Computed example of a mutant assay.
Amino acid sequence: MNTPADGTRLIYLMGASGSGKDTLLRLLRSHLRGDEPVLVAHRYITRDSGGSEDALSLTDDEFVRRDALGCFALRWRSHGLRYGIGIELDAWLSCGAAVIINGSRAHLEQAHARYPALTAVEVTVDPGLLARRLAGRGRENAEQIAQRLSRATQAFPVPQRCRLMRVNNDTAPEIAAAALLDIARAKLA
């Protein structure tokens, strides 16, 4: 039997910015049954989340301080920002919960090294739809959107023996959220 620390019940969600990860996670939470042990970990991030994502905003100094204290199970930098997942992740896995984290494709190798039994789930979206979503959220300028679109189509390294699944989010987000919830529920079996 796998130990909780190996990430057996960890779902590492990733996808291009604008692919709808935060929407899927909100919808997934709304469909959990009673005391179902599926948790979505919040991220710590060095920018205001604007209420559109499940993230706790930290200043750069506070992030560095918490990092030095060992408060993060996972951490990475992307687009000039710092992201982290708190060490509560390990406690939740030890309690038998399936835990979903909103991760980064570029950080998958490091996450897999710490949690070798995690399941990576990539949210995929048609590039044209992705461009419209990025423009619609008003968070980036045209140059930043072009950079994100370019990055979205680039291959990313997947560690050997890492289970990678894909969930398409081109249609109603409820369909993709249900697929993600099915993946989480399978971890509890």
Rank of each mutant, 00 (worst) to 15 (best):
Y12E: 12
A41P: 03
R151T: 08
A146F: 03
A73G: 05
S57Y: 06
G86N: 12
Q147D: 13
F63S: 04
S52V: 15
I45L: 15
A131I: 02
V167Q: 06
Y115E: 04
L181E: 00
N102T: 02
G128R: 02
F72N: 08
S104T: 08
L10M: 07
R47Y: 10
I87Y: 12
L89I: 06
Q110M: 11
T153I: 12
E62T: 10
A179Y: 00
S19M: 11
P173A: 08
A97I: 07
I175K: 12
E174K: 04
T3E: 14
G96S: 03
R9L: 08
V158E: 03
L69K: 13
L89W: 01
H112T: 02
A97M: 09
S49L: 11
G34Y: 11
C71T: 12
L69F: 14
V121T: 05
R26C: 09
G51N: 09
P159L: 13
M165G: 04
A146K: 12
G80W: 13
A113T: 08
L39P: 00
S49K: 08
N141L: 05
A135E: 06
G70C: 11
A113L: 04
D54E: 13
S30L: 14
L25C: 13
L130G: 04
V64C: 11
F72Q: 10
E53V: 08
G50N: 02
L181H: 09
C95T: 14
E36D: 09
E143D: 12
R105L: 09
A111W: 00
S49F: 10
R137Y: 02
L24D: 12
M1I: 11
I183T: 01
G96P: 05
R9K: 14
E88K: 03
L58Q: 05
E36P: 02
A135V: 10
R185L: 00
H31Y: 09
H31M: 14
M165L: 15
L27R: 12
T23D: 11
S57D: 12
R132T: 09
R139P: 00
I145H: 01
P37T: 03
D48S: 14
G51M: 07
T171G: 12
G70R: 14
S30V: 07
R66I: 11
Y12S: 10
R133D: 04
